Amino acid sequence: MRKVICLWSLVMLCGALMLNGCAKEQVVTPEQPLTAPSSEKQLKQSEAAKQAVQEEKIASPAIKESPVAKDEASASAAAAQANGLLKTVYYDFDSAILTSSARDTLSANASVLLKKQTGLKIQVEGHCDERGSAEYNLALGERRAKSAMNYLMTLGVPASRLSTISYGKEKPADPGHDEAAWAKNRRAEFVVAN
C-alpha cells in the first residue's frame, strides 16, 4: 500500500510539473542593456561597452572556423565531459525503488545537466543482474530507467532531454556470478544520446 501511495504521489508531482511548464529566460545581448541607464556615468559605460563589442568584431580574424564544425566539436567535448560527470545509480534486488543514496546521485546528475550541460540529451539505461528470465529483466530494467528519469524530471530536467532504454541482463558491468557482481549489475546508467 505504501508503494502505491509513493508511486501515485510521484505521478501526481510529475503531472503538476508538466502542467506548469518551464519559465522562459530573458536573453540580454551586450547591445541591449536590461534596464535603461539612469545616470550619465552609466550611459557612458554603456556606450563604452558597445564600442568595445564593435571593436572586438572588427579585430577578429576574417577566416573563422565553420559554425558546423565548431558546434560538432563543442557538442562532442560536452558529451565526453557529461559522460564522465554523470554517475551510475544502483538498485536493490528485484526493485526499481530509489534508495536515498540513489536519490543523492540523481540530484548530483541533475545539477550537472541543469548547470553545466544544459543542451545535452541523455538516455537512461536500465540494467539487471543475471537472475530471472530475459523478459522479466527487460521489464525490470525499464522500470529502473523510468524511475530514474522521473526523479530527474522532478528535479527540473526537461522530459524532452531524457529517454529510456532497458538492456535487462544483456550488458553486465561485472560478469561474475556472486552477490558483489550482481550488486554492480543492478543499475541505471546515463549516456549522451545522439
Results as ranks from 00 to 15, higher is better:
Q26Y: 08
K3V: 02
K50I: 10
W8G: 04
V191Y: 08
L13E: 14
T88V: 12
L120T: 00
L10D: 15
P67R: 01
N83R: 07
L138V: 01
E55N: 10
Q26M: 06
M12A: 12
A159C: 04
M1S: 14
N83C: 13
Q123K: 13
A48N: 09
N194A: 12
G141T: 00
Q123L: 05
V191Q: 02
H177G: 06
A59Y: 10
C6G: 13
S111V: 00
A145T: 00
H177W: 07
A49W: 09
D178I: 01
Y167Q: 08
D94G: 12
Q51W: 11
L19V: 05
L34P: 05
H127L: 06
A82S: 04
L43C: 07
E25M: 15
G132Q: 07
G119I: 02
R103L: 07
A145W: 05
L98Q: 01
A159N: 08
E55C: 06
V53T: 06
P30M: 02
P61E: 02
A59G: 07
C22S: 09
K169M: 09
G15C: 10
T29V: 04
L155I: 00
K44I: 08
A16L: 15
P158I: 02
L86F: 06
Q32F: 10
V53R: 09
Q51D: 13
E40A: 05
A77R: 14
S74V: 01
G132T: 00
A96G: 13
L13C: 14
E170F: 01
Q26V: 06
K50W: 15
K24H: 11
V192L: 04
D94H: 07
V89Q: 01
S166H: 04
D129I: 01
Q81H: 14
L17R: 12
Q51C: 09
A145R: 01
A148I: 01
A48I: 01
D104C: 04
T105N: 03
C22T: 05
E56C: 15
S101I: 01
E40I: 03
P172C: 03
A96W: 14
R187H: 04
Q51S: 14
I63M: 09
I58K: 13
L113D: 01
R186I: 00
A49Y: 13
T118M: 13
M12Q: 15
